[in-house]
Write a protein that binds this DNA or RNA. Structure first.
Lengths: 112, 112
DNA sequence: GCTTCGTATGCCTTGACAGGAATATGCGTC
DNA sequence: GACGCATATTCCTGTCAAGGCATACGAAGC
């Protein structure tokens, strides 16, 4: 069966992050996720299983469909891990502003 | 050569998280990390290389040693990804409390 | 210039997933 | 109860990264 994957390993998978992002705005069935992500259905089901077993999502049965919804706890764990690092970089405000400037300018298409 | 690994994949590795945690309190040489983590030296060097190439750390040369120090940017990226999820769970965690407090703005209609 | 210390790199093996295809299960409809 | 739709599971395969080991490299001291 599936081995112990940390919270971090689970969100390391790009398609799983996309699933979480979609569920952020609203609950979705497997078929909806399948279409929006343009992934084969077995792939979606497998990712959902990983997410479900790790507590990221839960499913409710609705007729023949399973509608998945987001659960906050695992991502809160991830967030908690970041806390001491946030304290660290808040001491480096200059670096922070440089970083945000770069991001903003690259979004606007302004080359450095 | 090493392939491009996402920020997420990089922190998914437990030993790398330990390295980041140690560098949080103070800069450290490879040998210090090696002893504190009880890892073989090549392993430490390899993890440091991954972290360095992804911008998590940088090294300064000090005589024969290389002293590594933390850089905030990549973890800030990770933090940025979490922002919308924080908004999500803040609606859920203290939903009850907020419900009572928000009676003043009764016209808002904040249900889905 | 040889040795030693500190660190990096190369090679190899192993294991964990992700992806694809086929198949199974489960529910609703007729 | 056969069929069809929605989802889950199984099997197989390829890939890629971590770990172990040996070795290379570079600086410093003798």
């Amino acid at each position: 069966m599936l081995l112990v994957e940390s919270t971090f390993a689970i969100v390391a998978e790009p398609n799983r992050r996309k699933i979480l992002g979609l569920l952020l705005s609203s609950d979705r069935s497997v078929g909806e996720l399948e279409r929006e992500l343009r992934l084969p259905q077995p792939s979606v089901s497998k990712h959902l299983r990983v997410l479900r077993e790790a507590g990221f999502v839960e499913a409710r049965v609705e007729a023949q469909r399973r509608v998945y919804r987001l659960r906050p706890e695992p991502l809160m764990e991830l967030d908690a891990w970041l806390v001491p690092f946030r304290r660290f970089w808040s001491k480096h405000v200059d670096a922070l502003e440089r970083h945000l400037d770069k991001q903003a300018s690259s979004k606007k298409g302004t080359k450095r």
